[in-house]
Design a protein around this nucleic acid. Structure first.
Lengths: 339, 339
DNA sequence: TTGTAAGCGTTATCAG
DNA sequence: CTGATAACGCTTACAA
């Protein structure tokens, strides 16, 4: 492998001068710089990060720890956001997946440390509280889409589930709906309670009584092996004599079943029943006909912001074990009609 | 940071002896070994990979290059497969995403080289042919879910789209269907032609005429901005006087629209129309009611095998710029009925 | 503006 | 079985 020394030799300068050129340091004649750059090009020299790290002990590398990436496909956007940030800022990303095993998580932390990473982005694919095994370690960490269970106060970034559900509920209310159904998300997810609260409170603010609301549990049980009541719940809900004119469902994925249940009952969307989802999981929200009005979860932004926050923590801007929240954006399509 | 030397000092041995213990080399007394291990534990010593690499020039790191991870959510399973392999074999994963930009791809290759990675897994999220910018570089590379456009003959691993579609078609044929519809995948995807061919040939083998087949284009155009004809195509197909008794669709995502179109026409699934998908994208295939019979794409296996293949290439087992293919597995659920 | 020398944490070599 | 010592490719400190 061609090293800094071969370049120095080829350019007829010292290794330090080459180092200066590589790192864009000042105090190099334009002429020398060019000569060195030519040598670099000619020899196809590429700096060795490992050697650099060993001296400067700043790896410019972030680690990402995820849990069940695969089970919630849309949230890969978080990772994409992180990668894009890293790419734009010259950082490298090391990635590992716990698969839910805390033994593995411990190994990962160790592996990260052996690479002397600058910081960790702890990403969960469902919004929930977790307890990173960081434990004894003092690596700067930012949590994305989750928050620490203990009071350790790591900074975290989460989507604003409350605001998203509030917007959606208002949207329905503004269009005259006064009987509204809600299919609840799995209660073990952090977002579930927030979304439900927002739904209830917003409806109340508009003067709806609890009896105007049909609230049903859509799913429950451990992630990846949950019990699914959505279809049955939606069917039952729509068979009430005083059936809702609009249904809001915990997420877009569940909405598929709401659509099918509605249609199986011979009801039309949105003429007979308006429907909104949550997440803007486009594989679903755009595939449904009519296309689904929903609230977009800011996954990409979560990743981008998370990386940026971690960076500032690493840079020493301590002082802020903050919990930041990113807004959800209502995406209006055609599954809702005014009554 | 605690280094090998502090450990050596604490254990009262030389640094080389510590190194021997860390790397599980022979010729160390059990007693010495224990003393060293204790020192390691006491001091919380963690080996510095960068320092190790600089001497041994084997980074034990693989790079993953992906294109549009986010647009095809299910294929994150490929990455999970790779990660699991890496985890089980003590390798580290560096990950980067081109976002489709070849300028960025070039940067990524450079970045990977600066980390002296042992090999690259080139993963595309849709099966298609690509031309990795590897170019001048001689890093061992394995392509997953795609194949080299040029004849450069990099080893590749792909799903067996043909066999998957064949199985699905036979499944329908075996159950007595003799009028079958097919909604085609976007033709720019490698799998599209293979699946269609398999459908046609298998139907022909069973003695069906071309006129027994209703074949419609479901999508076309650039990935991420395709035009979508699925709903219209399915509706039209089912309104023919001699309508198919079964529909096969390019993938599960498209199947959502097929379901909705079918139901909107007042037809029941599977009593009036049987439906099969492709991919086993579970977010969809399990959410549909009745649950969808489909062919599971071996994404996880692709990742696992790809990493393993790369490893053997790196280890020097040249000789095989092979193109390996992994089978799709038919997943039987309840969307098909015999006629 | 440039060069020299030391040192980072490992592993490799070779002598003991 | 164990230990000095060199070497890896780079940055840092300091000197020129």
């Amino acid at each position: 492998m061609v090293s800094i020394i071969s370049v120095a030799k080829a350019a007829g300068v010292s290794n330090k001068t080459v180092s200066r050129v590589i790192n864009g340091e000042p105090y190099v004649t334009e002429e020398t710089r060019e000569r060195v750059e030519k040598a670099i090009r000619d020899l196809g020299y590429i700096p060795n990060m490992a050697a650099r790290l060993i001296r400067s002990s700043r790896s410019n590398t972030f680690g990402i720890i995820t849990d069940y990436v695969s089970t919630t496909p849309y949230s890969v956007d978080i990772v994409r956001g992180i990668q894009d940030w890293a790419n734009a800022n010259g950082k490298t990303i090391l990635m590992a997946n716990t698969g839910g095993s805390s033994k593995r998580e411990a190994e990962i932390w160790k592996m990260f440390q052996s690479h002397r990473i600058d910081g960790v982005l702890y990403v969960t694919m469902y919004r929930r509280t977790v307890d990173p095994e960081a434990g004894d370690v003092r690596i700067p960490t930012v949590m994305i889409n989750c928050r620490p269970q203990t009071n350790e106060l790591l900074p975290s970034i989460e989507p604003d589930d409350y605001q998203g559900a509030q917007d959606l509920t208002r949207y329905l209310l503004d269009r005259g709906h006064r009987k509204i159904g809600y299919i609840r998300l799995n209660p073990i997810l952090l977002g579930a309670q927030l979304r439900l609260d927002a739904f209830r409170k917003t409806a109340a603010e508009f003067g709806l009584a609890e009896s105007d609301l049909s609230i049903r549990l859509g799913m429950e049980g451990p992630v990846g092996a949950e019990k699914n009541y959505v279809f049955a719940a939606a069917t039952e809900m729509l068979q009430q004599k005083d059936r809702p004119t609009a249904i809001m469902s915990g997420n877009d994925e569940m909405t598929i079943q709401v659509y099918i249940a509605t249609m199986a009952l011979g009801l039309r969307i949105p003429e007979d029943v308006s429907i909104v989802g949550f997440d803007d999981f486009r594989t679903v929200s755009l595939a449904l006909k009519p296309e689904l009005t929903t609230a977009a979860l800011p996954y990409y932004a979560l990743g981008l912001e998370g990386a940026d926050l971690l960076n500032s923590v690493v840079a020493g801007n301590k002082a802020r074990p903050s919990r930041r929240v990113m807004p959800c954006k209502l995406v209006e399509r055609t599954s809702v009609q005014s009554v």
